[in-house]
């Protein structure tokens, strides 16, 4: 697990569902093929309605310099991030776009499992409604071990919720390495 995650914030609202994260027409790519995995980065967050994309102002493109990788590193969301389908392509799209962590009030359970078990991004939870306190483009730093989020642009610091029982899985790098570590998997 990385000890710190730094980069720019991309802020979204509540109920960002998996269709907004990766629209269904792109699910024809096979994430097991590295060249196709890259494509998910290109279409990440492409169905977020423009007025809701990059809060508080909205209408902020997720990609500018590179068509596959975003300029942003940390996504800030509100409630129920990742609701909807079970498509693992959703955390994959964020990972392929260069996102390292999402910080949201809470997650839909399948998206949360997929993020953790696939080892794509760290899904942090926050007791604060940070999607109304952080602006798209703010420079952020997450201290993973301490569970703190620093807004380097404004000087504010927030305590994130502990990763709790999924911390060992995130630390191992996902379900397979974790299962090997605890003896559930011999291969």
């Amino acid at each position: 697990m990385q000890s710190t995650i730094t980069g720019k914030a991309y802020v979204l609202g509540d109920n960002i569902d998996t269709d907004q994260i990766i629209p269904a027409q792109y699910l024809t790519y096979n994430p097991s093929i590295p060249e196709e995995y890259k494509q998910f980065g290109k279409y990440a967050l492409s169905s977020v309605p423009p007025s809701q994309a990059g809060l508080p102002k909205g209408h902020v493109p997720f990609h500018t310099k590179d068509e596959f990788v975003s300029d942003y590193t940390i996504v800030i969301g509100g409630k129920n991030f990742g609701c909807g389908s079970s498509r693992e392509h959703a955390p994959i799209a964020l990972d392929a776009a260069g996102i390292k962590a999402v910080v949201a009030e809470f997650y839909a359970r399948i998206f949360y499992r997929n993020s953790v078990n696939g080892g794509y991004i760290i899904p942090f939870e926050t007791p604060d409604r940070l999607c109304e306190k952080i602006c798209t483009g703010d420079d952020l730093k997450i201290d993973v071990a301490a569970g703190t989020l620093h807004n380097l642009t404004t000087g504010e610091t927030w305590q994130l919720s502990p990763l709790g029982e999924v911390a060992p899985i995130i630390d191992a790098g996902g379900l397979f390495p974790y299962a090997r570590k605890v003896g559930m998997l011999k291969v």
């Binding site: 994430p31 079970s86 498509r87 997929n114 078990n117 996902g174 379900l175 299962a179 998997l185 291969v187």
Partner: peptide, 20 residues
């Protein structure tokens, strides 16, 4: 219940999965 590819790949090989 619904699961993702990683979980399903794990079940495919072991027949098991952790559930809360």
């Amino acid at each position: 219940t619904g699961i993702g590819n990683t979980d399903a790949g794990f079940v495919m090989g072991t027949g098991k999965l952790w559930v809360k």
